[in-house]
Design a protein around this nucleic acid. Structure first.
Length: 559
RNA sequence: UGGGGUAUCGCCAAGUUGGUAAGGCACUGGAUUCUGAUUCCAGCAUGCGUAGGUUCGAGUCCUACUACCCCAGCCA
């Protein structure tokens, strides 16, 4: 949508808000929130939610809170909290006020639970988890009332007090909302709203022995924060009646409304936190920020930019229909950004020795080349030319194939930004491997077309005596299947792409690339966009391939 | 067999008093090009899950089907 910025990205939630604003709902205030559970790292799917929630607040002059939905201490940790804060900031969004935690509201939530008990709308149930499942009924059969459902208010109060005090063991009982065991919507069949957990909480320590369930915590936390539009994904749609029931039965300050949108699915990857964690725990990848991971930190390390991710989120839109977005769309977003903003450079990844026989030994010539073909504001760079050069192995064929625009025996090709050279001799070993090319350069072709003959095309190169040794990590899609989770009989792990990472250690980059800082982006001409990895140092430069350039030659070859 | 949803080009997605199918990605031609990149031009749904119906006219209204997704954690 950025490309021609004609149709402004609109979505059904914005339309609802516009109507609300016209009606004067919420006093004209738009307050949203992004509510991650700190039990893993954020991924591209969360980026969609972040852009929606923060973007909506921005669009309507409102605010968006960052709230950790931390009601399940056993699965959560400070490491995840830190990573989430880092990722949201990096994406370019600022939340209103301090970071919030559902655990900030534990006391209020507890008091509201007591309120429900006193109103005869909640009870302590001693049923075991197995029994509770039996009593709940099935999708097609109604449930039955628990034998503990009619306990007196006083008894419930006393029991809940004991749960809270820690005098009752974990799992011995729970607090349930008293709604309707025959409701067709299973979420309304007396949902559990508090359970006993003698666990240490990353924020509240050992203060609490009981923790509220998601359903009991979320809507009320929204109300406490004055959220006007509580946006979540489709799977919570069935929870909305419960969300509304709790707000209707509690003395909350405001009544937020919940709206659901379809979560993002991307092909050739997964966006299940559980499975991403499995990839990390079982070391199929190097960590949450492995450049192959669809996590925000992985994309960042891979070389994706905040602007590209935000643009991608605009491109895919927000609807209620479940679909699978093509990875090509994400790649298009980063190409668009980096094409206009990344400085160009030359790097030879699989070097082939080229000796310029008519260029004097020990001599050197420097060229000043623009850093960007269309944007002078990016400045220029200097590259060194000499007798000993390196070109890409795949840029030479002894016998040129049809439509070949590179170097071939006896033919001429332009070295980007320098001279046209001709291959005069091919040096091979006994096995027939090509070891070196003897070439001659045409001194008249600096900034000028050759006279009386034509060069096949343009290839990139580097001065062997001046280039910077470096490592290049070629990344590709993590899975070989568009939907690695489709096969019920096989694990998604079976479809990990064995070539998702290819490490090249004998690469040579142009001189100016020495001492580049991590996260600096480049376009290595004719190869793709690359970004300096966090492992990189002055002693050992490391580049990650973010994405290749579009390659019409590859398509010609295939056909 | 219960409840809640969704169905518009290969993918995403506009379409809001019914008026004669945006755009992006991908793809295919062609032009420019010292990146087979970029850019530019052109092409790409007589049809909107299916079948009926209402209407001068339906993706938009009605009816009946079909497919797919979510729900039976003391996870979120």
């Amino acid at each position: 949508m950025t490309k021609h910025d004609n149709v402004k990205p609109s979505n059904f939630i914005h339309q609802i808000i516009e109507q609300d604003l016209e009606k004067g709902v919420n006093g004209g205030q738009v307050i949203t929130r992004f509510p991650p559970e700190p039990n893993g790292y954020l991924h591209i799917g969360h980026a969609k939610s972040i852009c929606l929630n923060f973007g909506t607040a921005l669009k309507f002059g409102g605010e968006c809170n960052l709230r950790f939905d931390d009601t399940n201490p056993e699965k959560e940790s400070q490491e995840y909290i830190d990573s989430i804060i880092r990722d949201v900031s990096w994406l370019g969004f600022q939340w209103a006020g301090e970071v919030r935690y559902t655990s900030d509201y534990f006391q209020q939530l507890h008091d509201w639970a007591v309120h429900l008990i006193k109103a005869g709308k909640a009870y302590v149930d001693d049923l075991s988890p197995e029994q509770m499942r039996e009593y709940r009924g099935t999708l097609t059969e109604p449930g039955r009332n628990s034998p503990y459902r009619e306990r007196s208010v006083d008894e419930n109060l006393a029991l809940f007090e004991q749960m809270k005090d820690g005098t009752l063991p974990e799992g011995s009982c729970v607090l349930r909302a008293k709604i309707d065991m025959a409701a067709p919507n299973i979420n309304l069949r007396d949902p559990v709203i508090y359970r006993i957990r003698h666990a240490h909480h990353h924020q509240t320590g050992d203060q609490w022995k009981i923790y509220p369930s998601y359903d009991f915590a979320h809507g009320q936390s929204d109300a406490i924060e004055g959220i006007s539009h509580s946006i979540c994904t489709l799977e919570f749609e069935d929870h909305r009646p419960l969300y509304d029931w709790l707000l209707a039965n509690l003395p909350v300050p405001v009544v937020p409304r919940q709206y659901e949108f379809a979560r993002l699915n991307l092909n050739y990857t997964i966006t299940s936190k559980r499975k991403l964690k499995q990839l990390v725990d079982e070391q199929h990848v190097s960590g949450w920020n492995d450049p192959r991971m669809p996590t925000i930190s992985g994309l960042r390390r891979r070389g994706y930019t905040p602007a590209a991710i935000r643009n991608f989120c605009d491109m895919i839109g927000v609807t209620r229909s479940n679909g699978v977005v093509d990875m090509a769309m994400l790649e298009a977003a980063i190409r668009e950004d980096l094409d206009s903003n990344a400085p160009r450079a030359m790097c030879v990844t699989r070097p082939l020795k080229v000796t310029i026989t008519n260029f004097a030994e020990g001599e050197e010539e420097w060229f000043e080349l623009p850093a960007h073909p269309k944007d002078d504001s990016l400045g220029s760079r200097r590259v060194s030319f000499g007798r000993n050069l390196l070109i890409e192995q795949e840029d030479f064929e002894e016998i040129a194939p049809r439509k070949w625009k590179r170097l071939a025996a006896g033919e001429a090709v332009r070295l980007r930004g320098a001279y046209v050279i001709r291959c005069d001799e091919v040096i091979k070993n006994e096995a027939g491997d090509i070891l070196e090319l003897k070439c001659s350069y045409d001194p008249a072709t600096k900034g000028a077309n050759p006279e009386g003959y034509k060069a096949n095309g343009v290839i990139h190169w580097v001065n062997a005596d001046r280039s910077v040794p470096c490592e290049v990590r070629l990344y590709d899609r993590l899975f070989t299947e568009a939907n690695p989770e489709a096969d019920k009989a096989r694990s998604f792990l079976d479809f990990i792409n064995p070539e998702s990472l290819v490490v090249l250690t004998d690469c040579r980059a142009e001189p100016g690339l020495a001492n580049t800082e991590p996260e600096t982006h480049f376009q290595f001409e004719r190869l793709g966009y690359f970004t300096v990895d966090q492992d990189s140092s002055a002693e050992r430069l490391v580049f990650n391939r973010t994405v290749t350039l579009r390659d019409s030659w590859a398509k010609i070859q295939q056909s």
